[in-house]
Write a protein that binds this DNA or RNA. Sequence first.
DNA 1: TCATGTGATTGATAAAGATCAATCACATAT
DNA 2: ATATGTGATTGATCTTTATCAATCACATGA
Lengths: 232, 232
Amino acid sequence: MPDSEYRDVRSLDLFAPLAEETFTSLMRGAYVQNFPAQIELIHEGDPSDFLHIVISGSVDLFSSWNGRDTSLSTVRPNSTFILAATIKDAPYLMSARTLEKSRIALIPSRDVRATFDVDGGFARAIVTELAQSYRSVVKAQKDLKLRTSLERLANYLLGQQRHAGGGAVFELEFEKRRLASVLGMTPENLSRAFRGLQPYGVIVTGTRVTIDSQPDLERFAAPDPLIDDPST
Amino acid sequence: MPDSEYRDVRSLDLFAPLAEETFTSLMRGAYVQNFPAQIELIHEGDPSDFLHIVISGSVDLFSSWNGRDTSLSTVRPNSTFILAATIKDAPYLMSARTLEKSRIALIPSRDVRATFDVDGGFARAIVTELAQSYRSVVKAQKDLKLRTSLERLANYLLGQQRHAGGGAVFELEFEKRRLASVLGMTPENLSRAFRGLQPYGVIVTGTRVTIDSQPDLERFAAPDPLIDDPST
DNA sequence: TCATGTGATTGATAAAGATCAATCACATAT
DNA sequence: ATATGTGATTGATCTTTATCAATCACATGA
């Protein structure tokens, strides 16, 4: 692993509390690999052999049942995914595929569990990460159960806008059909939902979104930090 | 706290790794209280001052937005709730109310965090609990995004049946309108959904469910351990 | 430049789910 | 025994969302 990437991984909150020696030994069993776009990295139901870390690129976590499938979240550098499965030594609940050319570090789950068993600091860092993940999913659950798709889209746009710096114009960060899946709707309905937000001053051309009337959109979206603020 | 309850709390997986002395000191700041039915114990958005433990009775975790509300889960003895908020020292994402007369232990969150900071074994027990909770919500998310309400009900009934011992006849464990909310539908639609399952051999009279044709129901429900098995 | 493919959009229609109003069933209190 | 209240059910209707089919827009490669 090149030194710069070693430092990228080292800088993750998850690994911060590890002694240099412990980290190095954990990394000894790890390897890094480049993947092209659209490669399935893991398949739900498989045993969780590796903790994955996205070093560059991006990864889609999705799930299928009975011929349907849905995107659950996106992982970007620098973060890990499927930590819970690794810790519990339980099968993956979600599949993962690269959205673009990506570089992924793989740490054997056995090593992660072994380190976790002996290093209290590491265990505490994992707690923080898991608590954060748990709260994210609970928020997603509330978003899904309490809102219509139009309301979800409106709040998603406000979140993206803030993420992009808060200006009136910003870009959608992924394909519309994937956005539709993340928001729990079909691509057709996403198209219609964008039009449905026009009365609240939302203009979409391609991947460019303009929010003409911030107050109108916010009044309609009624964002709630207990659903929409990813930081708490 | 009576000795029998002290032992109940002590027997939780979460507290098993604590030294007797550490546990006792954690319990010193705790107190136990009886609540009547339908009392709101915590309100979403409030600071998480206490880790709650259900000693007897049951508690509904729910959330509201814009005049709507939804039940997210039920907590029964002996388990804790809002552990993630306690650990992160972040506001509650869900409200909680007693479903029946209940006895609840309250441990100051500050004490839990302090113990967590110094006791690696406790941190590891918390990891296990959080990983479990995280996976439960992910499963609920998949259930909600991948299935229709009829399919969710069918799978819920199969789960309840298994939980009740696997016989053809069993009882629903809570009010239908709450069940509707948990499953993400209205009470009216739950009524219709029960009728919609008649062709698959489901008969409901009051709270008593009879599954006449197990194979038919399972063929329709297509249960999947990665969604429906609470143990993994 | 032109064909080709893929994702996005649009329209028509169907299905799923919500809402509203009325009634029913059953428990509890008088 | 009768009144009262609450939750469950049913029917009618409306809204939301999905599906299917066609077209459009745009990028890529021959």
